[in-house]
Amino acid sequence: MGKWEDNKAWFLVLPVFVLVAISAIIPLMTVVNYSVQDIFGPGERYFVGIEWFEEMLANKRLHDALWRQFLFSGLVLLIEIPLGVLIALAMPKRGWGVSVSLVLLALPLLIPWNVIGTIWIIFTRPDIGLLGVAINGLGVEFDHTAAPLDAWITVMLMEVWHWTPLVALLAYAGLRAIPEAYFQAARIDGASPWAVFRYIQLPKMRGVLTIAVLLRFMDSFLIYAEPFVLTGGGPGNSTTFLSIYLVKLSTAMDVGPAAAFSIIYFLIILLFSWLFYQALQNVGTGDRQ
């Protein structure tokens, strides 16, 4: 046959293969390479096997950062997904209000990430920031550079402000794509607004919400620039998320452990994205006996 082996069409796949190799496979393999060696300097290295992995998995500070990261991403999903859906439901369906609300929503998404951190530093400063002064003026002590809880609240607020619009835009697109006949049938069937949401709008948003959950999970799990600019990981280690810790490690020239850590990090994201994807694809689709 020779259909597979000799086929010239393989050459057509070559450019994609080269691109993926350069953009993903080669960098990833470099990391794998570092993760199993101890490097003292150019040419001075020896193979350590899974030692770095063992060291990292036993690292207390890594555990703390990991739990912090799960808490953060969990809160992000719990707040941003429902809030985004609510905003999408409340958005106008036609007329000039549509473009106005779309532009307003898109604004936070257009600002560079490190600038977001700076904006929020100034916004929440207890001495000159609009929000900081307002809260302290109410008699509540609020300082994200001193109190861990305040730092968390500020980081969460910033994250929600920054990324909920993305969820809202996705959800809005999903809602607009539902054919009018569904709502007409629901009216004839006497469905309440809640039933319309529960049985029409929510199931029809499955696709876009899957994307929203995956994007927000991956992105929040990788968060770096905004909290780094805002709190630098502090006070103490209270907002040191995984990637901030990873950067601290690798800039301390511990390339081996940092590489091992990166791979663990990558596998966690892969695993959870897969779990979310499976769960969202399958919820409410099986037969009932």
Partner: peptide, 26 residues
């Protein structure tokens, strides 16, 4: 009155039974 549209309207997450029961339940 009942109305049947050009494209079938069903409630995706419900079983056939639940679909048929829906207008009565409401």
């Amino acid at each position: 009155i009942a109305q049947v549209f050009q494209f079938p309207v069903i409630y995706d997450t419900m079983t056939v039974y639940e679909n048929l029961a829906f207008p009565l339940k409401n």
